[in-house]
């Protein structure tokens, strides 16, 4: 696998204007994803993962303000482009798949019309019915030609998600971002979408970014994982290292309380006491310190980013134990 970086987020900070002050949703995040790689962004609600995903495709809501940093796609900072140039990139070079694909479709147009509209806006030759059908077929939609004539409500959630993925892939984007792509689906559909996305890695030449709170999805699908807490990436590394040798206390705590890993006979599940800090006034030191079982006096000081091994980084005062 070549290590050509496609998308690079550099020291990005994003804040939302709120009545009580600016809510700092993403704080000094640096990440990169290479061609052919699947990056997972994992964290609980309020950790800033969806804001980060929106920034990656330059689709931040109007209330969001980029404080500093850059989002470079093949070296070009998307945040500094003129609006027209941004629109051209969106969909063409970066595509996004949402949690509930129903909301992404117009209920009164057929699947074929919408997908053709979407890709035709960028490249009319792609909107030919045979090419659309071929792509639907590739994402595992049975009877793809007939599916083009159906309306969104006639498809199940899993099928709509497949169509959304197909539409995103038709443009052959450099980066595909999927925000909670399986959260609205049943287990069996979830397994099929995971399977499909994993399958695509071999044929799709771009990078995939999966944003989710579901640890199982990350473990099944990703090569590399970034764990977010309170707007920061607290730990990053290869998926195996994150799941089998977590270094940050938050990553450890999060993995520990998943009922899927806990022995059912043990009865009680571990929990993480306390709650997220107020992000309108984030602490100068470690954001996890008040909830951390291993906190030291130094933890209220600004945290250095350690690199315990190649390809890994941890935002924690404590050394490897």
């Amino acid at each position: 696998m070549g290590m050509t970086v496609v998308l690079e987020v550099q020291n990005l900070s994003v804040a939302y204007a709120m009545p009580g002050g600016a809510l700092q949703a993403v704080r000094d995040v640096s990440l990169s994803v290479a061609r052919g790689e699947v990056l997972g962004i994992m964290g609980e609600s309020g950790c800033g993962k969806s804001t980060l995903a929106a920034a990656m495709i330059n689709l931040l809501p109007p209330a969001a303000r980029v404080g500093q940093g850059a989002v470079r796609l093949n070296g070009t900072d998307m945040l500094r482009l003129a609006p027209a140039a941004q629109r051209a990139l969106r969909g063409r070079s970066v595509a996004m798949v949402f949690q509930d694909p129903m909301t992404a479709f117009n209920p009164v147009l057929t699947i074929g019309q919408q997908v053709a509209d979407f890709v035709g806006a960028h490249d009319a030759s792609l909107a030919r019915p045979d090419r659309l059908a071929a792509m639907l077929d590739r994402v595992g939609i049975p009877d793809a030609a007939r599916c083009l004539g159906r309306y969104p409500h006639e498809l199940s959630g899993g099928m709509r998600q497949r169509v959304a993925i197909a539409a995103a892939l038709l443009m052959q984007p450099d980066v595909l971002i999927a925000d909670e792509p399986t959260t609205a689906l049943d287990v069996t559909m979830e397994a099929q979408i995971i399977h499909l996305l994993r399958d695509l890695r071999t044929t799709f030449d771009g990078a995939i970014v999966i944003v989710t709170h579901h640890l199982g999805v990350i473990a099944e699908l990703c090569d590399r994982v970034a764990v977010m807490y309170a707007g920061e990436v607290v730990e990053e590394g290869p998926v195996d290292a994150i799941f089998h040798d977590p270094q940050h206390p938050y990553t450890r705590a999060l993995l520990a309380c998943d009922p899927a890993v806990v022995d059912p006979a043990s009865g009680r599940l571990p929990t993480i006491a306390g709650r997220l800090p107020d992000l309108t006034a984030p602490p100068p030191g470690c954001a996890f310190e008040p909830r951390c079982g291993m906190a030291l006096a130094v933890c209220s000081q600004p945290v250095p980013r350690r690199v315990p091994a190649a390809g890994r980084s941890v935002l924690c005062h404590r050394g490897a134990e």
């Binding site: 009545p19 009580g20 929990t271 006491a273 306390g274 709650r275 107020d278 309108t280």
Partner: peptide, 11 residues
């Protein structure tokens, strides 16, 4: 387990 009332929530 601690559930503190968050003063940030608007009344």
């Amino acid at each position: 387990m601690s559930f503190v009332v968050d003063p940030a929530l608007p009344a």
